[in-house]
């Protein structure tokens, strides 16, 4: 769970970095996009490195999902299928200190998965093309995010991602053994909040820039 999560977070950071190239203009962005396919040449064939990354990411997603389902099933088995809501009393719906992020981790994950499929169909395979299809990744981005409801759907998904990362990053670090004291626990949680914020803001900047006409 934690290791696959870390891989996905690292990918998100790289992805975010790539996205920000949109501010350098169409040539830079399309060039970057094209370069990803040439990465590792000539040792690797065209798109080879990209496919390796894709396979690794897919594997990470599968492992992440399988682990999540395993944990979810074990939690259901241990709590009669009711998790944190297994008490008749409704006076402590959030327990003693549970964060909203920890609450929504599982359904947030499902939401993000659905979004990723939508996102791939939209910007990678060009299957769904609100605003018009194009061979230029830059144009696809600009076409899509010029429409308010596309930006809105991405924003909602990224908020879900924010919550997922806020608890997920902390939990991954703690699970891998990084939590060594109550002070460290606080600090790791701060790191999780910061990384989650950076990623989400980093991802939101390009769509809003497009929507507001700053790019395109």
């Amino acid at each position: 769970m934690a290791i696959s999560g870390v891989i996905l977070v690292l990918f998100l950071l790289a992805h975010m970095y790539g996205n920000l190239k949109v501010f350098e203009g169409q040539d830079a962005f399309d060039g970057y996009s094209h370069h990803l396919r040439e990465l590792g040449e000539p040792i690797l064939p065209y798109s080879g490195a990209l496919w390796i990354i894709r396979v690794v990411l897919l594997a990470a997603i599968v492992v992440h999902a399988v682990s999540a389902i395993t944990l979810w099933r074990r939690a259901r088995r241990a709590t009669g299928g009711k998790g944190g809501a297994r008490y008749a009393s409704s006076k402590a719906p959030r327990g003693a200190q549970r964060s909203y992020a920890s609450f929504t981790l599982r359904w947030g994950g499902v939401t993000i998965l659905l979004f990723v499929i939508y996102h791939l169909l939209h910007l990678t395979t060009n299957t769904i093309a609100p605003g018009g299809a194009s061979d230029s990744p830059f144009e696809r981005v600009v076409n899509g995010f010029s429409i308010w409801w596309v930006v809105l759907s991405y924003t909602i998904a990224l908020i879900a991602l924010a919550f997922h990362l806020r608890h997920g990053i902390w939990a991954a670090m703690a699970t891998l053994g990084a939590n060594t004291s109550p002070t460290r626990r606080k600090n790791l949680n701060i790191i999780a909040v910061v990384v989650a914020a950076v990623i989400v803001v980093g991802f939101l900047v390009p769509p809003f820039a497009v929507l507001l006409g700053l790019v395109g």
């Binding site: 395993t70 944990l71 074990r74 939690a75 088995r77 241990a78 709590t79 944190g84 327990g95 003693a96 200190q97 549970r98 964060s99 920890s102 981790l105 608890h167 902390w170 939990a171 703690a174 699970t175 939590n179």
Partner: peptide
């Protein structure tokens, strides 16, 4: 049959 840990922290509280 105990569940797994997802680092929520209710136990410590």
């Amino acid at each position: 049959g105990f569940g797994g840990c997802t680092q929520i922290g209710e136990c410590t509280a």
